[in-house]
Amino acid sequence: MELRQLVAEDASAYWELRLEALQNSPEAFSTSYEEAIQRENPIERVKGNLKVKGNYTFGAFDQHKLIGMVTLLQESSLKMKHRANIFAMYVSPIGRGKGIGKSLMELAIEQAKFSQEIEKINLSVVSSNEAAKNLYIQLGFNVFGIEEMALKVGETSYEELHMSLILK
């Protein structure tokens, strides 16, 4: 298993895994698969995002295939640079139960600490996703809010927990 920060050359692999995530776990992401496949030049957009200062996307590779990812995105405004958000956390079903999600999250947390600017990490998780919720709690995240009807997939509404980890 190789864990590392993704670079522009990983954009195609990232996009492929992103589409898998949107199909397999539609309730876990604010973007729908249908919206994603409509995007113009998605791989070029991913390449650009991977180069943005304060945007760190980490990947887990199994025999050169990307099977897990997480993005840590630092806020850019002067009054909010001390905050970052976790986005696009996903581990392919073939990689689940092996500690990959935890390893990816630990990399993101270490990057936040290394930045010396980030003092707090926020994330949102669907309240019914017990595995993810338990992982975040194990890593020290605390719930600071609950949003009812945060996402709607078809006729089903999902509640999200807003969580944070204070680093300093």
Score class of each variant (00 low, 15 high):
V153L: 06
M105P: 04
S164M: 12
E40F: 12
Q38T: 14
E155N: 13
L78V: 15
L22D: 03
Q63G: 10
S12T: 12
M149A: 14
Q116Y: 00
G48K: 14
E130Y: 11
S77T: 15
I67W: 00
I166K: 08
Y33H: 11
N142L: 14
K65V: 11
K168I: 11
K47M: 10
P42K: 06
P93Y: 07
G68S: 08
G95L: 04
P26V: 05
Q74S: 10
L73R: 15
E20H: 13
E9D: 14
L50A: 00
L107V: 05
V91K: 04
S157F: 12
H64Y: 13
A36D: 08
L66K: 02
Q138C: 10
F61S: 06
F141Q: 02
V46K: 01
F58A: 05
L139N: 07
N129E: 01
Y136R: 01
E2H: 13
I37C: 11
A11Q: 00
F144P: 10
S32A: 07
F58V: 05
R96S: 01
K102E: 15
I94E: 14
L123K: 00
G140K: 01
S92L: 06
T57V: 13
Q5R: 15
I121C: 06
P42L: 08
Y90L: 02
K79P: 05
E16I: 12
I67S: 07
K113C: 01
Q116E: 01
I137R: 09
E148T: 13
E44A: 14
P26G: 03
E2M: 11
S164I: 06
P26L: 05
E159M: 13
N49A: 14
M105D: 00
H162F: 12
G59Y: 06
R39C: 12
L6G: 02
R45S: 15
Q23M: 11
A28M: 09
Q111D: 02
Q138I: 07
N41L: 08
Q23S: 13
Q63V: 14
P42A: 09
G54H: 04
K65I: 10
K51C: 09
E148F: 09
V46C: 03
E27C: 03
E20A: 15
S157G: 09
A36L: 04
L72I: 01
A36W: 00
N24Y: 13
I67F: 01
S128C: 08
I166Q: 10
I100G: 05
L107K: 12
L151N: 10
E148L: 11
Q138A: 12
E117H: 06
E147L: 10
A131Y: 10
K113Q: 03
V7R: 13
H82M: 02
E40G: 14
L73Q: 15
Y136A: 01
G101K: 06
E75K: 07
L22A: 02
M105S: 04
E119T: 02
S32G: 07
E110L: 09
F114E: 12
A84L: 06
N142K: 14
V46D: 04
V126P: 01
R83C: 15
L73K: 15
E34Y: 13
L66F: 11
G54P: 06
E27L: 08
K120C: 13
I43A: 05
Q116A: 00
T156Y: 04
V126L: 02
I166W: 10
E147W: 08
P42W: 03
N134V: 04
I137E: 14
V143D: 04
L107Y: 10
S32M: 03
V52D: 12
E130F: 09
E16R: 15
K51H: 06
F29V: 09
E147F: 08
I166V: 14
M1G: 09
L6N: 03
